[in-house]
Computed example of a mutant assay.
Amino acid sequence: MSNGFTKLKLDELNRASVTEFKAQVKLPVAVVLDSVRSMHNIGSIFRTSDGFAVEQIYLCGITAQPPHREIEKTALGATQSVNWTYHADAVEAVKQLRADGYRIIAIEQAANSVMLNEFTPDKNEKYALIFGNEVNGVSDEVMQLIDTCIEIPQFGTKHSFNIVVSAGIVLWDFFAKLAIG
């Protein structure tokens, strides 16, 4: 007895080619990785950014850059579809994003942060979402430059989510609230 659910094959998913992806409308979001250590995390954020059609990723500080085998293990080719740049200094990258008209937002646990479920992005703005180092979070120097800080509500015993989980939650929330698709 069948309930009517059958898994789709890859060729039935109707995904965009890299060329089509590059030409499509993007979520008005730049993802900034502030000294992210794990190449698997970096690759996963590339893949998540591809899934939500993010404009660009800024790799900063010690964050590794493609091409690298350990990034590709989780990116699965998303380093080819998502535009990215490397910046040795996250502060300079954030200053450039501000000059380019982005609203600067740290995803961090901080005094006076706004809970993600209470934040409503403006469809007329562009956003730079900063995700920090797995241990130390967003650097103090970058925190001094932000316009606001978003925190993901948590109800368990752990202090934080993995950076990839955080990126997935926040990017989905922005995608859903901005409804670009």
Rank of each mutant, 00 (worst) to 15 (best):
E141L: 07
I146S: 06
Q154E: 09
N117E: 10
N136W: 15
D122E: 11
E134D: 08
K123L: 02
F155D: 03
F131A: 15
S113C: 15
M143Y: 11
F161V: 06
F175A: 11
T120C: 02
I130Q: 04
K126S: 05
D140A: 14
V170E: 00
F161G: 09
S160T: 09
S160F: 03
I169F: 08
D122Q: 13
L171A: 03
E125K: 14
F131C: 15
V170H: 01
V142S: 10
V164C: 11
F155I: 06
V164R: 09
A111F: 01
N117K: 11
E141F: 10
C149H: 01
T148F: 01
E134Y: 15
Q144S: 14
C149P: 04
L116S: 02
M115F: 07
N136T: 11
F161K: 12
E118Q: 14
N162M: 06
F175D: 04
N162K: 07
S160A: 05
L116H: 09
Q154G: 14
P121N: 03
N124G: 15
M143H: 04
E134S: 07
T148R: 09
M115S: 10
L116E: 06
H159Q: 14
E125N: 12
F175V: 05
I130L: 07
A111R: 09
E141A: 15
A128V: 14
S113H: 07
T120E: 05
I163D: 04
V138E: 09
E118F: 10
A176M: 02
K158Y: 10
D147P: 04
D122I: 09
I152W: 01
A111K: 08
N136I: 06
E118Y: 12
A128K: 08
G132L: 11
E151K: 14
I146C: 13
N162E: 09
H159K: 12
V164S: 14
L116D: 05
G132T: 13
K177I: 00
F161I: 08
F161C: 07
V164N: 12
A128H: 11
L145N: 13
E141K: 15
F161D: 09
I146A: 05
P153H: 06
V165Y: 01
I146V: 15
N136K: 15
S160W: 05
D173M: 02
I163W: 06
E151A: 15
D122V: 13
G156N: 12
Q154S: 09
G137F: 10
E125Y: 00
V135D: 13
S166T: 10
F119C: 07
I130F: 00
W172K: 00
E118H: 10
Q144N: 15
S139G: 03
D147A: 05
W172E: 00
F174C: 01
G137Y: 14
S139D: 04
